[in-house]
Amino acid sequence: MVHDYFDKFTFLCEMYDEAEKEVKELILNFFPFDNSVQVIDPKKGKNLVKRVQLPPLRLEMLEIGNIVNIFSKLLHIKDCAPATKRDLFKNYERTFALIKPIPASEHGKVITFIMKHGFRIVRMKNGRVSKDFVMQMYRDIDDNQTLPVIIDYVTSGEVIGLELEGANAIEKWRECLGATDPSEALPGTLRNLYGKNKLENVAHACKTSESVKTVLDLYFGFDDGKPKVPFQATFKNCTCCIIKPHVLIDGNVGAILEQIVTSGKFYISAIAMFSVTLTDAREFYEVYKGVLPEYEDMCVHLAEGKCIALEVKCIDSKLNCVCEFRKECGPRDPDLCRQLYPNSIRAQYGKSIVHNAVHCSDLTEEGEIEVEYFFKLLATK
């Protein structure tokens, strides 16, 4: 899309003013033509930040709920103007995708496919589903011979559920999947690329908005504070990996997942997407306060968008998982990684010490504690 110099997207934000000890309501204007921003204090009727270019800021970062750093001013996006909602989210809808029990080595490829086709992942977690869940998901099938076979297959192993967002997402996801039978699916569709047969055909797609709503609640919903599909973290002999928000924007989530599981050393026992508040981020990174000069910037970045938490384990249980996985990630500085460990995760997908693709546990005793922080504490918020 070509943008005019005066095109703008308007967001309603809040900012805590340290000097005046109050929360201010502000307006953030983003001009996509030259990647410039303007921050207005509507009560005072003046600019807090005059229109100026801010190259690090990208339109994908301006989602409701995110925190953006505008020249050290932390703005929490609460809403957007009607015109912005119309222009940015025209025909936007959400759908549910279920990655069936396929080899873990293919999970990354499937997620890369999803992101390259313009879908935004809103929620994501791995799990095991019940017979009742599968019956609800396939309630449009009335073949008494086929349904039991599908139920047995989908409940036979780990699945990954995703809530996807995009323009005409329900129909588009079905088109991206291709025909039920991979041999009949169009070239380039997901089932054509990775499907084996009509049963083992990679993933599932809902047909209607009603079924999307039902299945999203069944997969991501809670009953009496407990998730209907339990998180898979075990909190034993593990390390914690956090895929940072910039990786989602850059579209590299799938590549990182693929690198981890094809390394021959690790497997991912639990995966889930989280929204982290600035308070949460400061608490999680508390051990680095006063130690790393980037502490505050690290906290802000973790709260800037969705992140993905992983519980990672070594295939060889005798190995120290925390130490081994740190080697896979590489040093904190991606530039140093590129010189010394060019195949490490941070060398390939990191951009700076703060935007260094992933966080990984530093000390052996921290692995289980950090996994618990996400999969026990944040998972119930």
Rank of each mutant, 00 (worst) to 15 (best):
D132F: 09
V276Q: 03
L48Y: 15
A357W: 06
N252A: 09
E283R: 08
P334N: 00
I67L: 08
D132A: 14
S36A: 10
P227M: 12
L319M: 11
I308E: 05
R346C: 09
K306M: 13
T364K: 11
K73A: 14
M137T: 05
Q136V: 09
V358R: 02
Y349H: 14
K376W: 07
N192M: 12
K131M: 07
C240N: 07
V149A: 02
C238E: 08
N320P: 03
V291K: 14
M137A: 15
K100I: 10
Y295V: 02
K90P: 01
R120W: 06
M1A: 11
R94K: 15
G166Y: 06
T277S: 14
C337M: 05
K125I: 01
V202R: 00
N91P: 01
D224N: 15
R174T: 02
K43E: 09
C206S: 14
D4E: 05
N197W: 13
M1R: 04
L378P: 01
E294A: 10
E368Y: 07
V215M: 06
P101N: 08
G166M: 06
E328V: 05
G65K: 11
A203Y: 11
T95L: 04
H359E: 04
F119T: 08
D217F: 14
P32I: 03
N252E: 11
Y267W: 05
I268S: 13
E163H: 06
T95R: 05
L216E: 12
D333P: 01
E200T: 04
F284I: 06
M15D: 04
C307G: 00
N252G: 04
P56V: 11
A203H: 09
K213M: 08
D181M: 00
P148R: 00
E294F: 05
P293C: 12
E63W: 13
A179H: 02
L54V: 06
F9M: 14
F325H: 07
N69C: 03
E184W: 00
L193E: 03
K21W: 09
F235Y: 12
V122A: 07
L74K: 01
I64S: 12
L292Y: 01
A233R: 00
M15Q: 08
F235D: 04
E25G: 04
D140F: 07
D297N: 13
G178L: 08
L310Y: 10
K172V: 01
E370K: 07
H246A: 04
T146Y: 07
F30N: 02
G195P: 00
